[in-house]
Every structure is written in C-alpha cells, then in structure tokens.
C-alpha cells in the first residue's frame, strides 16, 4: 500500500487552519496570563505565607507539576458538571491551562524570589532604601533578568500543550485538523500543515518574546 500525497485539498483549508491558530493563540495567552497571576500569588504564599498557606501552595504545585494536564483536564471537564457547574469546553481548557501554568510558573517565581542576593539586599538596607525602592532597584531588575527566559520558554511549551484542547472538542488548530481529517482523509498532509503552522507560530512567539525581553527587560535572549 502506498500513499500519494495530494496537497491541494489540504491547502484549501488553510484559512480555516489559520483561524484555528488564532484560537490557539488567544486560548494560551489568556490561560498563561491567568497562570502568571496564580503563579506569583502561589510563589509569594510559598515564601512569605503562614505555615498553612505554604502547605496549601506546596500541595497545589506538587499536584499539578506531577500529573499530566490531559488527566487534570478530564477531571475539570467531567468533574465540574457533577457539581452542577456547566462550562464550555473552551473555558474548561482555559481553567486547566491556567492551573497548570500557575503551578509551573510558581516554581519559577519561587526560585526567582529566593535567588535575590542577600548581599544586594543588605547593600540596599545600608543605603536606606524604602521597601518600594528595594523592589524597584533590586528585586524587580533581578527577577526580570533571571525569570524572563524560563517564562518565555514555558509559554512556548504551553502553546504546544494546548493541542490537547482538541480532545475536548475545542476548535483550535489541532481540533480543526481533526475536523478536516475526518472530512477529507488526507491525514498526512493535514497534520504536516498543522505541524508547520505550530512551528511558524511558536517561532513568531519566540521572536516577539525576545523583542519584548530585549527592550522591556533588557534581557539578551538567544533565539537559537
């Protein structure tokens, strides 16, 4: 059995795929944004919180970093209706992305907070900096430099991870590839095109993140 590649059919769906890519982008953007807020809150709770807060935050991080996001997505998708909460697949995936991103980002933020050099803080103390000045001149620049690269990496990983939304019927890029596949059966061509769009999309995202890093946080990110 040999398969003859026919790109024409698959290319007809290109606009449809690009629309899917857009869904992927805003899904991950919103999810990651929520994840950033959750991550910072969790990291602060882990470092400065009361023992109870620390423990709760730790359990949350350990749970989500050690379980596949597909399984947690199943729980949100099938578990919430049991409590009478009915959400669209898009919202379920968004919540799942946010919770997962939050846990991984909390780890990043926590190590960032803990790595602020005590010597620098002592110097700031001696020079009589106020708390706000310490944040402005010591903590924030340090965090921007050490945290920005791993955070942008995580964002790319989450774009790729968002493909699992297709399993729950969200019509993002992979979901649309499923749809077209079941209509046209040109599987190889369709998934190749989807993969290519992911590659280009993440390249664009990396590039944009590198630019932001360079001009906002003065991080010299290495593209390759």
């Amino acid at each position: 059995m040999s398969y003859t590649l026919q790109w024409g059919v698959a290319f007809d769906y290109l606009p449809y795929f690009l629309g899917g890519a857009l869904v992927t982008l805003h899904l991950t953007f919103l999810g990651f944004l929520a994840g950033l807020i959750i991550g910072i809150t969790t990291a602060v709770a882990q470092v400065y919180g009361s023992p109870l807060m620390q423990r709760t935050a730790n359990i949350y991080v350990v749970f989500f970093t050690n379980t596949p996001s597909l399984v947690t997505a199943f729980f949100i998708f099938f578990g919430l209706p049991e409590f009478g909460i009915l959400l669209s697949p898009y919202l379920c995936i968004l919540i799942n992305l946010a919770l997962n991103a939050g846990a991984f980002l909390a780890d990043v933020f926590r190590s960032g907070i803990q790595s602020v050099k005590t010597t620098e803080m002592e110097a700031a103390e001696i020079m009589g900096f106020s708390l706000f000045q310490k944040v402005q001149y010591v903590i924030a620049p340090h965090i921007a430099k050490t945290l920005y690269p791993p955070i942008s990496n995580l964002y790319i990983i989450f774009i790729l991870g968002s493909a699992l939304a297709s399993i729950f019927g969200v019509e993002e890029l992979t979901g649309r590839a499923f749809n077209v596949d079941s209509e046209t059966f040109r599987s190889i061509e369709i998934y190749t095109i989807a993969a290519t769009i992911y590659v280009l999309m993440t390249f664009a995202a990396s590039f944009a993140l590198a630019l932001v890093g360079r001009y906002v946080f003065r991080v010299k990110a290495r593209m390759f």
Partner: peptide
C-alpha cells in the same frame, strides 16, 4: 532541533501514525 521542539506531541503522534501507515 528548532523544528521538533515546536511541534505539539499530539500532532506529531498523529503524523507518525498516519505516515507509517501511509508509507507501509
């Protein structure tokens, strides 16, 4: 290296599945 770090696992799984079937 640059390309294969940018393809979702799920998409590549399907691609390998269908490509291996398609090309025998």
């Amino acid at each position: 290296v640059e390309i294969f770090r940018r393809i979702p696992f799920l998409v590549l799984t399907f691609l390998i599945l269908f490509a291996s079937r398609g090309f025998g």
